[in-house]
């Protein structure tokens, strides 16, 4: 089949076109190449070159030896991380929090978007929206300040209220399990308002006619939400869900580090891959081990993105990343 002259001609033409894309641009689109060059160079230096450092993961890195002079140890770093249980604990914590963030967060966002779109009174809607959007704008340092103000043992507002009601002070910064609740609460506090916008836009996109027809058919208000609004949000929901599943092994360093910092007492329930890698770099240098965890995260992360993109392609082809 490929031997017919027409097909052959098409093949060579295609091949030539492919081969010469770059040469074509070099000749005709010099300016465009020049315009995109800063980004290309930047990523080459700060993203592609550091990939060489993946090699650290297989060495017992020391500063005298540097990248290629340090002893090569094969998969020893990985073996140690998994055998000691560190890798499992970090993976569990990272995924655990992300699952709560994704599912809890999405449910909250959808609920609040529906409430905002259906309440009566524009002023109330505007004011509420402005306020719940505010936490998105402040730095995580400030979030850490807030948390500390509310929860510290001696002067925190919560302990203040507890004692004034005659209760015992609660040691938040010494109680690991409670952070499994606090961290998601803080995340929801910071990102729900912002995350609501996209669902709000989707609700506004639902055609008014569908609602009107439904009302003529005599559906009740709750039926309207259940059978029209919620199904209309499904495409947005699916895409955002799959995209966030792609990032399920990447933790929010800022959030965890500002809330917990180097408080080792709480690491059991709060240490995620990203905070561990940071500590390995800054607090107790062990470049080889840190690189190994980073590489493990990067590989799983890439697989997750490819997997979720594959699913998006199946379900909503026009929203696939590539």
């Amino acid at each position: 089949m490929a031997n017919t002259p027409a097909a052959q001609g098409k093949n060579t033409l295609e091949r030539r076109k492919k081969m010469s894309d770059f040469r074509y641009d070099l000749k005709h689109n010099k300016t465009l190449l020049f315009m995109v060059f800063p980004s290309i160079l930047y990523l080459f230096v700060l993203s592609y070159l550091p990939m060489v450092g993946i090699y650290y993961a297989f060495t017992n890195y020391n500063y005298q030896g540097g990248l290629f002079g340090s002893p090569f140890v094969g998969f020893a770093n990985f073996k140690f991380l998994f055998a000691s249980g560190t890798a499992w604990k970090l993976t569990f914590n990272t995924v655990f929090y992300n699952v709560i963030f994704i599912f809890g967060g999405t449910a909250l966002r959808i609920a609040i978007a529906i409430m905002l779109s259906e309440i009566i009174g524009n002023v109330f809607r505007k004011v509420t929206q402005t306020i719940i959007f505010l936490p998105h704008f402040v730095s995580m340092v400030l979030v850490g300040v807030f948390a500390y103000n509310l929860m510290n043992y001696e002067t925190g507002l919560i302990n203040n209220i507890i004692t004034s009601l005659g209760g015992e002070r609660f040691d938040f910064y010494g109680t690991p399990w409670i952070w499994r609740l606090i961290i998601p609460a803080v995340e929801f506090w910071k990102s729900t308002g912002y995350g609501t916008i996209i669902y709000l836009a989707a609700i506004l996109g639902i055609s008014e006619e569908i609602y009107e027809a439904a009302i003529i058919d005599g559906v009740t208000f709750m039926q309207k939400i259940r059978y029209i609004t919620l199904p209309s949000l499904k495409p947005t929901f699916t895409i955002l869900l799959l995209m966030s599943l792609g990032g399920i092994i990447r933790g929010q360093f800022d959030l965890f580090y500002q809330l917990i910092g180097n408080n080792g007492l709480l690491f059991g329930t709060t240490d995620i891959i990203d905070t561990y890698v940071y500590r390995v770099l800054r607090v107790s240098p062990n470049i080889g081990m840190g690189s190994a965890v980073g590489l493990y995260q990067s590989v799983i992360g890439a697989l997750m993105v490819l997997g979720s993109n594959y699913l998006i392609k199946k379900l909503e082809p026009e929203n696939a990343l590539f």
Binding site: D21, L32, L33, S291, G301
Partner: peptide, 24 residues
């Protein structure tokens, strides 16, 4: 701009996979 998609892929790839914090 014929190379645009290849360049876009080149720009996107580091968000998919990378050396991580330490080599950077």
């Amino acid at each position: 701009f014929r190379s645009r998609n290849k360049i876009a892929l080149y720009l996107y790839f580091p968000s998919l996979f990378g050396g991580g914090l330490i080599p950077w």
